[in-house]
Design a protein around this nucleic acid. Structure first.
Lengths: 193, 193
DNA sequence: GTCTATACCTTGATAGAC
DNA sequence: GTCTATCAAGGTATAGAC
């Protein structure tokens, strides 16, 4: 490792990550990835055995991206409530992409539940949701909400997915901002005692 | 018309409707529809010019299904608030499918925004969302909420999409029921003055 | 490790017999 | 109106030269 090979592997994963997000997994062909990277189709099989292996690598990459995002939220704020607010505001930093392509895990998850052949990657995607859910629960615990932690965490995820879906359908940036604002009000209200 | 031909056409649309829902549009081939209906692949082109034409017919069919659902909500209750509650409760009647495949319009919409070649059908899908939104606004108007009607209607759609997504990801029937309950509480709270 | 050539299959779509 | 045979294109995957 540390060779040119692993660099090429990374370029494939990066290109696939972008293409799976913007076009969808099933609508992205090896030719598309080849065009974007300049790496010939046949060469992919030196790094991955199947297309689904590329998908698994992409999902792993997104898991890391979301971990970085959570780290970013932890650094941006000191208290648990502030960190939750930082998380909720995150889609605003990706506004353009969100309005065009939706949520990177939500939309991919919607696509893969319908696919009977990609069960492995489907469970990996649930892992990304679990990563978020556990982090949220962690913050809620610090706020003394350990009893309803699981429920509130799922509620929060549902609210974010919902406004992203509708903002995406109507390409409505104004609604996205207002929706996020409403979630923050709800957070404050729910966690005040 | 009234001939055997239109009956075959209907069988194609019905099968495609089910398959597009359970497998996704891009993952459903003519062979799949052929297998399900017993109608040979080549015969489809007597009824439809392209695959996207089948998609358009399916979206039209779902538009009718949703119109029927709204009619059902109107018949089930006399007042506007009760009718909104009837709408919110509707996913419970399709619980099994919702948990397996998600929302019939939400998931299809997520899939098609990523497709550059299906713009026509995409606008038709927005029409289904608009159908729901306008109906909701209609009920809100009768409740004297005409000013914030557009906002509240989008909020309601977002909340429903959100809980369906999360219930689908975690295959969590309990969360679906509780989420719908919470939406109803929110409705009562928002519309009481 | 890298790249080319290609096999093999499935796709959406067409032509034409009946 | 219905069906069969077939098309060209594009899909994933493989073999093997360099």
């Amino acid at each position: 490792m540390g060779t040119k090979g692993s660099a090429n592997r990374q370029r494939i994963v990066d290109a696939a990550d972008y293409l799976f997000y913007s076009r969808g997994y099933n609508q992205t062909s090896f030719s598309d990835i080849s065009d974007k990277t300049g790496i010939p189709r046949g060469n992919f099989y030196y790094y991955f055995k199947t297309k689904e292996d590329i998908l698994a690598a992409v999902v792993d990459a997104r898991l890391i991206e979301f971990k970085d995002m959570l780290k970013c939220c932890e650094n941006a704020a000191s208290g648990p409530l502030e960190r939750l607010h930082a998380l909720v505001q995150f889609p605003l930093q990706r506004e353009t992409q969100i309005l065009q392509y939706g949520c990177p895990i939500g939309s991919l998850s919607s696509e893969l539940v319908k696919d009977q052949d990609t069960e492995i990657s489907q469970t990996r995607l649930t892992a990304v949701f679990d990563l978020l859910k556990n982090w949220i629960e962690e913050q809620l615990n610090k706020l003394g909400q350990s009893a309803r932690g699981d429920d509130i965490a799922k509620d929060l995820l549902a609210k974010m997915q919902g406004i992203i879906i509708i903002a995406n359908v109507y390409r409505d940036a104004e609604f996205l901002r207002r929706g996020i604002n409403d979630i923050q009000s709800w957070l404050n209200q729910t966690l005040s005692h």
